[in-house]
């Protein structure tokens, strides 16, 4: 903290206060851990917020079965190294129905294996507050999301009926059955996250760094052939390209970019020169206009 520039120091303190608020105000909070850089920052902030105590809530990873292999390895290594209470949830009904991101399409896959899976996990464990790493700079409908966002018992979100949030006086009152989604990184940008990762020396999944990886060209983006499950189109031959990822998710839905950045400093330098936004590589956002807002109303994070 002493070495952080002022802007990061203030963002860090704001997020830490929010995490303590969640722990104090709710009976069963959970931190949604999606393995990416934002989750990594969130986890680090939670460890700072409660030091020297332990993080007083478990972590939940909603696994679709299609995450990059490197992500799962990183997740398990992190949980072991830090002694975390990690819950992994898979929508077994979706697995039984054979839902996958390619044949079912990204919209169905996301709804069943992410949105519905998350609702299942929250209901099963009775979590009343779910902490996520979403940032307001990611997408336009996120720009108006509250830090403490109330969901009905059915997990739905009404963007027209949101509580005003003044100062840092969070309204954490909910009725039985209702829950909140909490976004401590609301005011961080992608650049802030990377600058913080660099300043604090946080480990991140190696997929963020450039390396030779087998990829195919699809829908104007590069998809990595992470395992044998990705069906190749006729005539499609994976080629080795020097690529990295700006965001991580299900590998068939995550577009890579060509890059030479092999360090966090390299990523920051590349971003300064970059002319595309972070979510561009995500295939799910482009399903239809305003699709993120619709997904959020249904309970997507």
């Amino acid at each position: 903290m002493p070495n952080l520039p002022d802007d990061l120091r203030l963002l860090e303190a704001e997020s830490i206060a929010i995490l303590r608020e969640v722990a104090a105000a709710f009976s069963r909070p959970v931190l949604l851990y999606s393995i990416g850089k934002d989750s990594g920052v969130l986890l680090h902030l939670a460890r700072k917020a409660f030091h020297p105590g332990r993080v007083p809530f478990p972590l939940l990873h909603v696994d679709t079965g299609w995450k990059f292999r490197d992500m799962i390895a990183f997740r398990d290594e992190t949980a072991r190294r830090l002694g975390l209470d990690l819950i992994v949830h898979v929508n077994q009904e979706g697995v039984a129905q054979g839902i996958d991101p390619i044949r079912s399409g990204s919209a169905v896959h996301t709804r069943v294996m992410k949105t519905e899976a998350l609702r299942q996990a929250l209901d099963r464990h009775g979590f009343d507050a779910a902490i996520g790493g979403a940032r307001r700079d990611e997408e336009k409908s996120r720009a108006k999301e509250r830090v403490f966002s109330v969901r009905t018992a059915a997990h739905s979100w009404d963007p027209r009926d949101q509580r005003p949030e003044l100062w840092h006086l969070w309204n954490t009152r909910i009725r039985p059955g209702e829950s909140v989604r909490v976004f401590p990184l609301s005011n961080w940008t992608e650049m802030d996250v990377w600058r913080y990762v660099a300043a604090e020396g946080l480990p991140v999944v190696p997929l963020y760094f450039a390396a030779e990886r087998p990829v195919v060209h699809r829908a104007g983006t590069l998809i990595m052939v992470d395992d044998g499950r990705l069906p190749l189109n006729p005539g499609e031959v994976p080629e080795k390209r020097r690529v990295r990822f700006r965001t991580l998710g299900c590998y068939p839905l995550s577009g890579a970019i060509e890059s030479d950045a092999v360090t966090v400093e390299g990523i920051i330098a590349e971003m300064r020169a970059s002319r595309t936004s972070e979510r561009q590589g995500r295939l799910i956002d482009g399903d239809e206009p305003a699709s993120m807002e619709r997904k959020k109303r249904e309970g997507y994070f």
Partner: peptide, 9 residues
């Protein structure tokens, strides 16, 4: 209709 937050540096 609501408060939107934007970030730049």
């Amino acid at each position: 209709i609501d408060v939107a937050h934007r970030f730049f540096a």
